[in-house]
């Protein structure tokens, strides 16, 4: 069995199981009095049925899924995902400019950018975006709870 076929089988299995889980959860959507003849279960059940049906069909008759990258690239991807997660964690405490500089610089380096220029470009981008969004467009971005605490002390 070739790798693409395996990909399709796995995708079908995951989609089908997800459909079953969705249907199982939908059985708990009980309402005390029915406000309409359809109720809250119909659309989730429809989605679940499609997922189970198409998942099962994919397992039975797989087509060609994609090819997967090697370990080095997967590792780099994990790094990028971690950078996104870290960003969500540090944005409020450290503020937009610093967190964006750190995250964008690490992403740049994951894309093979030279580190000095990655950090420089990231810092410049963070400052430009801050001025563009906060000053020009009036969008609230976090200043950083840590700095605010230091400031007001």
């Amino acid at each position: 069995m070739s790798a693409p076929t395996r990909t399709d089988r796995a995708a079908g299995a995951v989609l089908g199981l997800l459909g079953l889980a969705v249907a199982l959860e939908a059985t708990t959507f009980d309402v005390l009095f029915l406000t309409d003849p359809v109720g809250p279960k119909a659309i989730p059940m429809l989605a679940a049925a499609i997922l189970v049906g198409s998942g099962a069909a994919l397992v039975a008759r797989p087509g060609s899924g994609g090819a997967w990258p090697g370990h080095g690239i997967l590792l780099r991807m994990a790094g990028a995902i971690a950078a996104f997660g870290v960003y969500a964690a540090i944005l409020a405490p450290l503020g937009f400019v610093l967190s964006t500089t750190a995250t964008v610089a690490s992403l740049s380096m994951l894309f093979g950018g030279p580190w000095r220029r990655s950090v420089g470009a990231a810092a410049a981008l963070a400052v430009v975006l801050w001025y563009l969004f906060v000053w020009l467009l009036g969008l609230p971005l976090p200043l950083g709870a840590v700095w605010e605490a230091l400031w007001t002390r």
Binding site: F84, L107, S108, G112, G113, S118, A122
Partner: peptide, 11 residues
């Protein structure tokens, strides 16, 4: 270069 472009998209 992509190392400049794509992190920018992310930001």
């Amino acid at each position: 270069p992509r190392w400049f472009l794509l992190p920018g998209v992310a930001a």
